[in-house]
């Protein structure tokens, strides 16, 4: 059990760092959804099923939907070409 917890926490922290340092905004939003899904697993492990359901419905579903609408409205809804990614260009 403890290794499952360690792996899930590692995935969560890696995704949280990816939210801050990924150059593409779509990838950052997807990484924040990954953080929410890992949190759902953690809440289920610590025996809080109500909170886990709320986090799955809101954190991974509705929050990603709201952020995706924001991406579309703010003009971030574009994928980078390979050369731009290699050159390390950021949107911000």
């Amino acid at each position: 059990m403890i290794w499952v917890v360690a792996v899930v926490v590692f995935i969560m922290l890696a995704a949280a760092l990816a939210v801050l340092f990924l150059p593409n905004m779509i990838a950052a939003v997807v990484a924040s959804a990954v953080v929410s899904l890992s949190l759902t697993v953690i809440f289920a492990i610590v025996k809080a099923p109500d909170v886990a359901m709320t986090e799955a419905a809101i954190g991974a579903g509705l929050s990603s939907l709201i952020l995706a609408i924001g991406l579309k409205r703010l003009g971030y809804w574009k994928t980078d070409s390979i050369d731009k990614v290699k050159a390390g260009e950021r949107h911000d």
Binding site: P49, D50, A52, M53, T54, A57, I58, G61, L62, L65
Partner: peptide
């Protein structure tokens, strides 16, 4: 069971 107004309401809204 686990669940309730908040979760179900979010599912309906989505």
């Amino acid at each position: 069971t686990p669940g309730g107004g908040f979760q179900g309401g979010v599912v309906l809204a989505v």
